[in-house]
Design a protein around this nucleic acid. Structure first.
Ligand code: FES
Ligand code: FES
Lengths: 147, 147
DNA sequence: GCCAACCCGATAGGATTTGTCAACTATACC
DNA sequence: GGTATAGTTGACAAATCCTATCGGGTTGGC
């Protein structure tokens, strides 16, 4: 089940890159795309989404680019995933941000599937809503032991 | 992200129905489909998959049907999901049953995304591999208070 | 004015999901 | 043996989503 989309991977990778940029110096799409192996036009869309949701700001023209609008430790994985991949819950009836009744279950309170996956959703959210981009930036970098 | 498929919902619902059948009396596809609102032909495929993986057995002809091959408390949600929806891990590089290198990450040990979602995967598996069909069957049934 | 860079809408190919169909095979029962 | 029952098989179709690309438009710096 439950694969995270390529789009989400790209989004997170780009955000980490932005968080690493010294002094919130603006980064250009082309650079991020090239350095982090992300299709450029695809990345444009992604960054635009993130901007529209208030995570980023941008400057046009020469010397322009993208900058984080908040400190990296205030941007959670959960937030990013909800923007690019939609609700985190594994069932529409379990989403807190976008609840929708399950079409094929008529008795929601007695639905066993719902009860079990409520635990899954909780566990997932506990991780994703507490991990931030700053955590990712701070992660230990293992050396690649050559030869 | 991460929606659980309709197929998985159907599979679980059918298994719970089978676990509820008295004395492992065989249940017929048509009945399960009708009672639990599952498209019949779709359900056939699903039960066949579950049979091929050794969860069920079947008998043909009159008086036939499907029967659980193991006690319900020996069938985990994780097992079922892996059969119908494939790997549980949210990234190919995190699957224990079907590991595959991520095509676009060249340095797996330093991949921040991977490290974060490893926690998600752990949390998910902790729930899914410990919850069984028997747990679902035993769930409290709330009355629908009809006025 | 002109180049750099972001912004926007459309769209296309492919994969996946969900479901259907027709025909086949095995079993029970008379 | 015939007939009805019920599972088995493989192909296939519609819808949706994912990934990515294209062509142009707009803004800002110099
Ligand atoms: S009500 Fe959402 S799964 Fe049953
Ligand atoms: S290696 Fe799997 S996500 Fe980076």
């Amino acid at each position: 089940m439950a694969m995270i989309s390529q789009k989400a991977k790209y989004a997170l990778r780009a955000l980490i890159a932005l968080a690493r940029a010294p002094q919130s110096e603006p980064l250009v799409i082309s650079d991020i795309a090239r350095v982090h192996r992300i299709p450029k036009k695809f990345l444009e869309q992604i960054l635009l989404d993130l901007k529209r949701q208030g995570l980023l700001t941008s400057k046009r023209g020469k010397g322009g680019g993208y900058v984080l609008l908040r400190p990296a430790d205030k941007i959670t994985y959960g937030e990013v995933l909800r923007i690019v991949d939609g609700p985190i819950a594994p069932l529409p009836c379990l989403s807190i941000t976008a609840y929708r009744k399950c079409a094929d279950c008529l008795d929601e309170t007695n639905c066993e599937t719902r009860q079990v996956f409520a635990h899954v959703a909780d566990a997932t959210r506990k991780v994703l809503d507490q991990t931030t981009i700053a955590d990712a930036v701070a992660m230990p970098r293992h050396e690649l032991l050559a030869s």
